[in-house]
C-alpha cells in the first residue's frame, strides 16, 4: 500500500477511536462516580444511558454560538483548536499493539521527547482562552494553568528520563520491548516505582484533573479559562481534557505497564490490542476513582509540592537509577 495513504488511513482510525473514546469516557466517568456516590448516574438516553454522550453532543452542536463583548475574536476562536490538536497528536507515537499495523510512528528514536514536546505545547489552549476571554476569572484560570503545568512538567520529564535510561532508548517501541522478559515483573512499574508514582501524580496535574483541578476551581473561579465558552467551543475544551486523559493513560501503560504485552501475543497479534485497551481502561478508572475520593489541594500547597517534593525526589531517582545501571545491578542492566 502507498505509505502516505496508509498513514492517512491509520491516523483517521486513531482519530475515530480517540473521539469515540472521549465520548464514552464521559459516560464511564459519570456512571462510575455515580456508583461511588451511591447514585445511578445517567440512565435515561438508551439502555444504561449509553446514548447520553450522543445526546450531549447533539445539544452542544445546536447551541447558539455566543461571542462575549470585547474579546480578542481571533484568539478567542483559536484557543479551543489550539487545545485539542496537541491532545490528538500525542497518539502518533504510542504503540497500540505488537504488529506494525497497530502503530503509527512509535518507532522514531525521539518518541519520548516528542511526547514531552507535545505536552509542553498543550498548555497554550488554556492560556490563550484565559487571555482572550476578557474576564478576570478566565485570566486567573489561565495564569494558574500556566504556572501549574510548567511546574509539574519538570517532574514528568524526570520520570520519563528514568524510563529512557532503563531502556537506553527514547523510542516507545524499544521501551515496550525492554519490558518483556516473559513475565509481569519485567514491567517498569516494579523496577521504577518512584518514577511511576511521580508520573502518575504529574500526569494528573498536567491534565488539571482532581485533586489538581485548580485551573477550573468552581468555588473560586467559576469555570476558570472556560468561563466564557459555550456550545461547540466548550465541547472542544472538554474533548481536549478527555482525549489527553486517554493519551496520558496510554503513555503510563507504555512506560510502566509493559505496553501491549501479555500472554499469547506472539501467536495472536490482535490480542495485544485487547491487552493495551484493558490496561488503559484500568488507568482511566483509577483517575475517575481518584477524582471521586480526594478533595482539591490548596494552590500554594500544590506549587510547593511540585517544586519542593516532586522535583527533588525525581532528581534523586534519576541519580540512583544511573548508579544502579552503572554498577550493573541485576534488573538494571
Amino acid at each position: 500500500m502507498n505509505p502516505i495513504l496508509e498513514a492517512v488511513l491509520k491516523s483517521a482510525a486513531v482519530l475515530v477511536v480517540a473521539l469515540t473514546g472521549f465520548a464514552y469516557m464521559t459516560w464511564i466517568e459519570r456512571k462510575f462516580i455515580g456508583r461511588l456516590q451511591a447514585r445511578i448516574g445517567p440512565n435515561r438516553a438508551g439502555p444504561f444511558g449509553l446514548l447520553q454522550p450522543v445526546a450531549d453532543g447533539l445539544k452542544l452542536i445546536f447551541k447558539e454560538s455566543i461571542t462575549p463583548a470585547n474579546v480578542d475574536v481571533l484568539v478567542y476562536f483559536l484557543a479551543p483548536i489550539v487545545a485539542v490538536v496537541p491532545a490528538l497528536v500525542l497518539f502518533a507515537v504510542i504503540p497500540f499493539g505488537s504488529d506494525p499495523t497497530f502503530q503509527l510512528a512509535s518507532g522514531i528514536n525521539v518518541g519520548a521527547l516528542y511526547v514531552m514536546a507535545v505536552i509542553g505545547v498543550g498548555i497554550y489552549g488554556m492560556i490563550l482562552a484565559g487571555w482572550a476571554s476578557n474576564n478576570k476569572y478566565a485570566l486567573l484560570g489561565g495564569l494558574r494553568a500556566s504556572a501549574q503545568v510548567i511546574s509539574y512538567e519538570l517532574g514528568l520529564g524526570l520520570a520519563v528520563l528514568s524510563v529512557i535510561m532503563m531502556a537506553s532508548s527514547a523510542s516507545l517501541n524499544d521501551i515496550v520491548a525492554y519490558q518483556q522478559p516473559g513475565n509481569i515483573l519485567g514491567w517498569l512499574i516494579f523496577r521504577q516505582p518512584v518514577a511511576a508514582a511521580i508520573f502518575a501524580v504529574t500526569a494528573l496535574a498536567e491534565l488539571a484533573r482532581a485533586p489538581f483541578d485548580l485551573v477550573e476551581a468552581e468555588q473560586e473561579l467559576t469555570a476558570g479559562f472556560m468561563t466564557e465558552y459555550g456550545g461547540m467551543k466548550f465541547a472542544l475544551f472538554y474533548m481536549s481534557e478527555y482525549v489527553k486523559m486517554i493519551a496520558m493513560s496510554a503513555l503510563f501503560v507504555t512506560f510502566f505497564l509493559g505496553g501491549w504485552s501479555g500472554p499469547f501475543v506472539n501467536e495472536a497479534p490482535a490480542l495485544s490490542l485487547v491487552y493495551f485497551t484493558v490496561k488503559v481502561l484500568v488507568c482511566l478508572l483509577v483517575m475517575v476513582w481518584v477524582r471521586a475520593t480526594l478533595p482539591r489541594i490548596r494552590y500554594d500547597k500544590l506549587m510547593a509540592f511540585g517544586w519542593k517534593v516532586l522535583l527533588p525526589v525525581g532528581l534523586l531517582n534519576v541519580v540512583i537509577t544511573a548508579f544502579l545501571i552503572a554498577a550493573g545491578v541485576p534488573g538494571y542492566k
Partner: peptide, 26 residues
C-alpha cells in the same frame, strides 16, 4: 535532526514562551 527539533519545541515553544505569555498576562 529530530532530537534538535524536539528540543526546540519543548524548550523554546513549550517552556520559554509559556513564561513569556505568563508575564504578558500578569
Amino acid at each position: 535532526a529530530p532530537f534538535l527539533a524536539m528540543v526546540q519545541i519543548s524548550v523554546y515553544a513549550g517552556a520559554i514562551m509559556v513564561r513569556f505569555l505568563f508575564v504578558i498576562m500578569l
